[in-house]
Nucleic acid binder design. Structure first.
Lengths: 118, 118
DNA sequence: CCAATTGTTCAATAACTTTTGAACTAAGGA
DNA sequence: TCCTTAGTTCAAAAGTTATTGAACAATTGG
């Protein structure tokens, strides 16, 4: 939790919606939800965007309070802030993720390689 | 239904989220939800933005599939597309509206005047 | 017909957001 | 120590969205 995060009550609905209203970020959130509990590092998402651009999108998610980024060594471990989001906006995250799961147009994470099932 | 609307299955999740991720539009949607069943005309929202700007925001909502605008005389009757949104993204609209209802920072509609209860 | 009401369109500008590459920091391993 | 890996920062460029005012269209009432 090294990097700046909003507190739960600083999380703003329009900002969360705007941040989720981007296909790259929605894909990241969907993937984090699918692998919930398993903290991801940024490199997981390199097939969505360049390293620099990922840094930008992940910062947006963090600043909006959607994700938590913990610095561990040279990595960032990224998790969904499900607890805080659920408390703040009950049902929102679940419905967004369910809808995102059924969205054929969203870019997929980890389709590039050996990651067949996992 | 005179103006161009997407069909239910053309409604896109990221576009809906992005469109809702704006305080003016979120206020409009919250107000439409509160008065559900009662079609509104644009002038209802004149305390949120100028006439021209409202036209812009209402077009965004319509083009995203969030609202339906029917031309009746010189007015537009605006309603929420709750049926289509619920079918397409179950639970999403309800959780967004519930969250918006609890948002002190969203601009309010109809606080300017005689509209005490309604 | 004339005027008012209701809303749209257009072009301009202002304000943001996204994307990029190059340069950087910080940790770990050989 | 030197190199690699993981990610950030910065400034520039590109792209997009929001806001404005002036001009327009269509309906309705007098």
């Amino acid at each position: 939790m090294t990097l700046p995060h909003p507190t739960a009550d600083q999380i703003s609905l329009p900002i969360v919606l705007a941040v989720l209203g981007d296909p790259t970020r929605l894909s990241i959130v969907r993937y984090l939800a699918r692998k919930e509990g398993v903290p991801m590092n940024c490199s997981k998402f390199l097939d969505l965007a360049s390293k620099t651009n990922l840094s930008y999108h992940l910062a947006k998610l963090r600043e909006a309070g959607v994700t938590r980024s913990e610095a561990v060594g040279t990595s960032r471990l990224i998790t969904l802030r499900r607890d805080d989001l659920d408390r703040r906006f009950p049902g929102l995250l679940d419905s967004v993720i369910a809808a995102a799961d059924g969205d054929k147009d969203l870019p997929a994470v980890g389709v590039s390689a050996i990651e067949v099932s996992a």
